[in-house]
Amino acid sequence: MSSILVLSGSPSPTSRTAALAEHLADRLRGDGHAVRTVRVRDLPAEALLSADVGDPRIAEVVAALADADGVLVASPVYKAAYSGVLKALLDLLPQFALAGKVVLPVLTGGSPAHVLAVDYALRPVLSALGAHHVVQGWFVLDKHITTEGDTLALAPESQRPLHEVLDGFSAAVSHRRTLITTP
């Protein structure tokens, strides 16, 4: 069974990005993956800001990342880039923390003007961390995400293409797992 770590990079306690990350995690579980979600906002702020890799919760995330076959990175767009809280986590990871991983970047934002943040802000950092394969990322407009309690709904114009990208990521993770476990 492939393992996937979902990093939810929204700093907000009530977040459409976090709800979307959970929705995508549930869909990946349905594909047979073991999925763990980490809300970066729930990690100790002092450890994140001081790059304290010895903090037990930070060390736990680094270990989970090392064990994962795939990583889904979700963040809202702020100032034409991913969130600062996500940046703080990415900055303290080991140099090649994503080596051998399949990675899917997913960003959310209020304007189509931010769609390029996937390729110009987040993808280069993921590649610099040694990602084996960064699959095509996706940008979802905030207005296409609605939540009511634990229920998330995506507008059809976002749902179909996002699920296609997610399915491609799922297949790539499964394929990678097959390659490393086949003698």
Rank of each mutant, 00 (worst) to 15 (best):
R123K: 15
L89Q: 12
L104T: 03
A74W: 00
S111I: 09
S83K: 07
R123F: 00
V73S: 07
G70A: 05
R123I: 02
A121N: 14
V73Q: 02
S75G: 07
G109A: 04
A66I: 15
S83C: 11
G70R: 02
K101L: 08
S83Y: 02
K79S: 12
S75M: 07
A68G: 10
S111K: 06
P112C: 04
R123T: 15
T108Q: 12
H114R: 10
V135G: 05
S111P: 07
A117P: 08
L116I: 15
A113R: 13
L107V: 09
K101H: 05
F96N: 11
V102P: 07
G130N: 08
L98T: 05
P112K: 08
L89Y: 08
Q95Y: 05
Q136V: 15
L104E: 01
P105W: 02
G84H: 13
A121L: 09
L93I: 07
K87D: 15
L122Y: 04
H132C: 01
L86D: 01
D67M: 11
W138R: 12
Y82K: 06
S127N: 14
H114P: 12
W138G: 14
L141C: 05
V134T: 10
A81F: 06
L65C: 09
V125K: 00
L104M: 14
K79H: 10
A113S: 04
A66E: 15
L129Y: 05
